[in-house]
């Protein structure tokens, strides 16, 4: 069973078909990039997969559960339990420290655990920046806090919206390296991007144009690049 399955979903705003009869499957442990130009429907698809919006028609199965007809309250619970979100603008709470920002996700999910939150920051290389406010962190560091927050509750799906859109090349590489590690550990990643370099490092790239999937590209070199790391992680 696929972790995520979109079955002929459409999202219509008046006369605009933001998504038009789109179908997609994402397997557990897969790393999928969704690419497309502005207005192609990427954000709409991300919102629907992230349980922040509902399709006008079609079905969305997440871990076998149809979430397209769920109430807002249930969607909030599903999002909390199964999805980790990473944003282009990081969206950290500006009056909480890096550590507290990670703990906020724990707070809504279950019980805050400072040691565990610190471990998540250590994992993204920010243990020494735990007590800093977002304003005291660089863009790359903020994005890594955002990733630590997304990982803290061990979600089944990491959904990233333009995760490197506001980063320089050095920080982009750091973030992509973290994604590689997560993938190697078996985390399912769906990354929405318009950056071809980010799309290329994914296992599979889905291209959206005018609300439709026009192409799917399987990255041939992906297995060769990641197989050793994957094997190491799985061992």
């Amino acid at each position: 069973m696929s972790l995520l399955e979109l079955k002929s979903i459409s999202k219509i705003y008046g006369d605009l078909h933001a998504l038009d009869n789109v179908s997609l499957k994402v397997e557990k442990g897969e790393w999928v990039a969704i690419m497309g130009p502005s207005g192609s429907g990427k954000s709409t698809m991300m919102n629907i997969i992230g349980c922040m919006d509902k399709p006008t028609s079609g079905q969305v199965l997440l871990d076998g559960v149809d979430i397209s007809k769920e109430s807002d309250r249930n969607l909030t619970a599903i999002r909390r339990d199964k999805i980790g979100l990473i944003f282009q603008q990081f969206h950290l709470v500006n009056y909480l420290t890096a550590l507290e920002n990670v703990m906020v996700a724990q707070y809504y999910h279950s019980v805050p655990d400072e040691a565990e939150a610190m471990e998540a920051l250590r994992r993204v290389g920010l243990a020494d920046r735990a007590k800093h406010l977002p304003s005291q962190l660089s863009g790359g560091e903020q994005q890594r806090v955002c990733i630590a927050r997304a990982l803290i509750n061990y979600p089944e799906l990491i959904l990233a919206d333009e995760p490197t859109g506001n980063l320089d090349e050095a920080n982009e590489n750091i973030v992509l390296e973290i994604f590689r590690q997560l993938h190697a550990e078996g985390t399912t990643l769906v990354v929405v991007t318009h950056d071809p370099e980010v799309g290329e490092v994914a296992q599979r790239t889905v291209v959206l144009e005018y609300g439709k999937i026009t192409r799917e590209i399987h990255n041939e070199s992906f297995e060769a690049k990641t197989a050793p790391a994957l094997a190491e992680a799985r061992n």
Partner: peptide
């Protein structure tokens, strides 16, 4: 508003 949206995205209920 963004912070509230973020909290909701992280799973905060209206009650929270």
């Amino acid at each position: 508003r963004k912070e509230i949206g973020l909290r909701k995205a992280l799973g905060a209920s209206n009650r929270s």
